[in-house]
Every structure is written in C-alpha cells, then in structure tokens.
C-alpha cells in the first residue's frame, strides 16, 4: 500500500488549501465509508486525504433558510434520518433512510460524500434531484451551485472538480408536493436496487399540476424522465395515461442488463412502479 497523508483542516479555507485542482489522488473525506471501499478494492490510491470532520456550520446540521432547507455536507445520514425538520419537510427522505445501507453506515456516511461519490445505485441523490435540490460547491475560485439533477455526468462521475468540495445541499420547500421513492430490489430485500424510481408531484384537484420523475440504479446517472413527465403533466393519472407514461419512460431511459434483472424485466418493473408510485402519491 502506497503511503499517504491525512489532513484535518479546521476551516473551509484551510480545507480548500489542502485540495489540489491538478491531482485526483487528493480527495476530501466525509465519513470515508465509500472511499474506504474503493481503497480496499485497489480502485483508488490516495496521496492525501482531507478529512472534513472538524469543520462546523454551515458544513454540519439541517436548518431553515426562508423557503429553503439547508443541509450541511458533513451531516451524517443518521442525523438527517432523525431530524424532525427533515421528517416534516421531506418525508420521502425520512422514509428512505430505514432501508438505506445499515445503521452503522448511516452513522458515519455523510450527505455530501453520498452525493460526491457519484454512484448511480444510491438512494438519496435521485430523491434530491426530484426535489429540485442544489449542491453548493466551494473551490479555488469561490462558490457555485449546481442542481443535483445536473451534478452527475457519468458512471461515478460528477461535476465536482478536483480541488472542489460540496459544502451544503439546499432544498426548496415544496408546499403541496408529494413524493415517494420506490427502491425496487430483486435479489433480496437488502440489496442495491434493480431500479430506483422517485416520483414527486403537485396536484391540482385530481390533475397532476407538476411532476418530476427520476430513474436511478439501472442507468449510469440518476436521470429525469422528462418525456414521461410531459405525458402526465396537466392530466388526470388514469391507468391508460400511466401506461403511456411508462412506455415513454422506457423509451427515454436505456437500461442495462445485470444480475438484478434483464432489460426487459427492468422495463416492466419501471412501468409497474410508475403506476404504483402515482397511485401512492395520488392518494395523498
């Protein structure tokens, strides 16, 4: 194992000074669970790890900020799971936690690390995307923000450059919206999903006023299903319409065969769960 150093900056500025825009072997570390897995499987050989555990607000905690909720990147998944604010504002996030990894991982893994990892099988990134959240990113040239749905650029690739780090997630409060995340596992209850499907919608009477659908796990990045959204937006979600939305979703999201299922079967699951998910949030 090649030697490397671990730094513990006390401030954000110090943290950025330890990072290196020209060296992908220098990485920021949140809880380190995903990074440890990559190091153990010889997929990543660091020269320097910049551990963010000593940074404080705004990197930690969940708080209200006008019509947004802000979550510090170093907030652990457990802290989000047990946050009354999150449970009240985004029950879809709260509900996803129970079947996300396990207690030990949730105690250590962080919201920021979970996003920055870029793994398309994860549960939270597609939900953030469907909620219209944005990631606040700090780097050598200052601060910028990127919508979570635009953050992912490929399999394990994100828009966060070397030398940058995610400091916060900013999620709009969505009065009147209802959302659900369907983690569809096919090998065991406790598994990476064969497909992940997030549905978030606002209803106007029995019509869908607005909707966001995000598919994850079976595709390289969490992906908005805009065609299916278009089919649904403004209409009453009856079985025929949902079937059309399913066809559209299947056409716009090329999925991959793997040990969790064939392409045909995943397409079938996608259609079934668009229907079931809409029925779930349609009931209110």
């Amino acid at each position: 194992m090649a030697d490397f150093t671990i730094e513990y900056p006390g401030t954000l500025a110090e943290a950025l000074s330890f990072l290196d825009p020209d060296d992908p072997s220098v990485r920021p570390v949140g809880g380190g669970t995903a990074l440890m897995l990559m190091m153990k499987s010889q997929m990543f050989h660091p020269t320097r790890l910049v551990c963010l555990s000593r940074l404080s607000e705004p990197m930690t905690g969940c708080r209200e900020d006008g019509d947004h909720i802000r979550i510090g990147a170093m907030t652990t998944l457990s802290q989000v799971e047990h946050s009354a604010l999150i449970a009240a504002e985004f029950p879809v996030i709260h509900n996803a936690m129970k079947n996300l990894a396990n207690v030990r991982v949730r105690n250590v893994a962080t919201i920021g690390g979970n996003l920055a990892h870029g793994d398309p099988h994860l549960d939270l990134p597609p939900i953030w995307a469907a909620l219209g959240a944005e990631a606040i990113i700090h780097g050598p040239s200052g601060q910028r923000s990127v919508k979570v749905e635009d953050l992912f650029q490929g399999y394990y690739e994100t828009d966060v450059a070397d030398g940058e780090l995610i400091t916060e997630i900013r999620v709009p409060r969505l009065p009147g919206w209802r959302a659900t995340y369907r983690k569809v596992t096919t090998r065991a209850l406790h598994d990476w999903p064969a497909i992940g499907l997030t549905l978030a919608a606002r209803f106007d009477g029995d019509r869908i006023a607005d909707i966001r659908l995000v598919l994850s796990a079976a595709v390289d990045i969490p992906q908005r299903l805009r065609g299916a959204e278009e089919v649904l937006r403004g209409h009453r979600p009856d079985a025929m319409l949902l079937a059309r939305a399913g066809d559209s979703a299947a056409a716009e999201a090329p999925m991959e065969h793997d040990s969790r299922g064939s392409v045909d079967y995943k397409v079938h699951l996608l259609k079934v769960h668009i229907l079931r998910g809409m029925n779930e949030i349609g009931k209110g």
Binding site: G32, M36, K40, S53, R104, N107
Partner: peptide
C-alpha cells in the same frame, strides 16, 4: 466481509455503532 455489510466488526465510536473495517484508524483521534 470487509464491506461494512456483515457487522462482525461493529464497535462504538462516541457511542454510535460503526463498521470498524470501514473506519480509518487515524480518524479515531
């Protein structure tokens, strides 16, 4: 398992259960 999945390596850090196999020793400071 070496992947934080089996829990054989469970220890408590500051009162919370963690997978010791995925926790850098250096971070125990």
């Amino acid at each position: 398992c070496g992947q934080g999945l089996c829990g054989c390596c469970t220890v408590h850090v500051d009162g919370q259960a963690v997978s010791g196999c995925l926790f850098l020793a250096d971070m125990a400071e």
